[in-house]
Simulated scan of single mutants.
Amino acid sequence: MTVLRRRTLRALAVAMATAPLLLAAACSHASDSTSSSTTDTGKAAATLPKTLVFSPLSLAPPALKGLSEGVKGMASAQGWEVIVQDPNFDATKQIQQLNEVISSGRAGAAWILAVAPKSMGDLIKTAQSKGVPLLVNGQPAEYGFSGPQPGITFDYIDYTAGGKALGEQLGKCMTEKSGGTGKALYVASQEGTAGKAEFDKAAADAFKAAAPGATLVQTIVAVDRAKAQTDIGNALQGNPDLSAVFSANDEGALGALGAFNAAGKKLNCVTDFGGNDEVLKDVKDGKIYASVALQFSDDTAQSFNTLVKMQADPKANGEVLVVPQKTFTAGS
């Protein structure tokens, strides 16, 4: 998996543990189906079981295993049965498993982290024909659609918004601490990371707009914290007056702190996209200026509530949800 996907799934697993408290009112939506039992929608809603099928990428990574346990706890608290599947990163196996449970009539709704979104077309048609609502990760275009679809809700991360917030925060920090001048380093995620192109562009554009007098001197790629620290240390040798870093992931931000400490240099400004517990503690302590953090607990609440509502009216268009983001600073 990519760096960003691994980090995202770790955060999801943590968030899911507290999700039941956020979803106490979720099942109140289950009674919103039409009062006419003669309509197609009414018949579908009446016959759908309160059974949620959860199909992650795999159960092998501990984060995904933890996420599945969180889903079971959350849905069970609302009176739902949960079927957890394990495609083990195999797109064909994932579709076969989902087809079996949806076609058999056992599924009342499905929550899918798709291994290969573009391969899901026939499965989506099957679910729509059965009136079984789906919630899938990503945007409609990733599945070959141009917008919302009957019985399908899409849930995605707005990488453009995240990159923009990251760049703006670094520019703000450099304006406050060095009059908007100085040299900055960008730590990017690996090639193939979801949303990389739009995130990188938005971050660079926002930084330039927020601190036009500052200079972006180099970009490196963070594979993990140790390598990021080594690479940033090397960048410091070539740019000894480097004073600011903005990172597309937690590994890069934490690696930057380590590199500057090891070199005995002051890092005036560092901003981060991710917001794991260690990063947020460093924000609180003033070591990191800002972290743009994905709010997976809030996303879990909106996702489950949406599935419940969709089950009451499975022929209606689903929604296009966005994972909420929040910027943390020392004063927030």
Rank of each mutant, 00 (worst) to 15 (best):
S28Q: 11
S35F: 12
A15C: 04
L134M: 01
A259C: 01
A226G: 06
P324L: 10
P56Y: 10
T219Y: 12
S104E: 06
A63V: 12
K309N: 05
S291M: 12
L257W: 03
A262M: 07
Q229E: 15
T8H: 06
T160I: 14
D86H: 05
I232S: 03
A91T: 08
D90C: 03
P140K: 02
V308A: 14
G66C: 00
N317P: 07
V270Y: 08
S37L: 05
M310V: 00
A26T: 08
Q218Y: 01
G138W: 12
P20R: 05
A222Q: 00
T41F: 08
T41H: 12
R7P: 06
F328E: 04
A203F: 04
Q229A: 13
Q302E: 07
F304H: 00
K43F: 14
S104Y: 11
A206K: 01
P133G: 02
L59P: 02
G105K: 13
L57K: 08
T193N: 15
T230Y: 07
P117M: 07
E198H: 10
L216Q: 02
F304G: 00
S303F: 05
A116C: 06
I124F: 04
R6D: 09
Q295D: 14
P148N: 07
V101S: 02
H29L: 12
A202L: 06
S103V: 12
D224E: 10
V279N: 07
T230Q: 09
T329E: 02
G233Q: 11
A11L: 15
S146Q: 11
E81V: 05
A110K: 01
T160S: 14
A235F: 08
G147N: 02
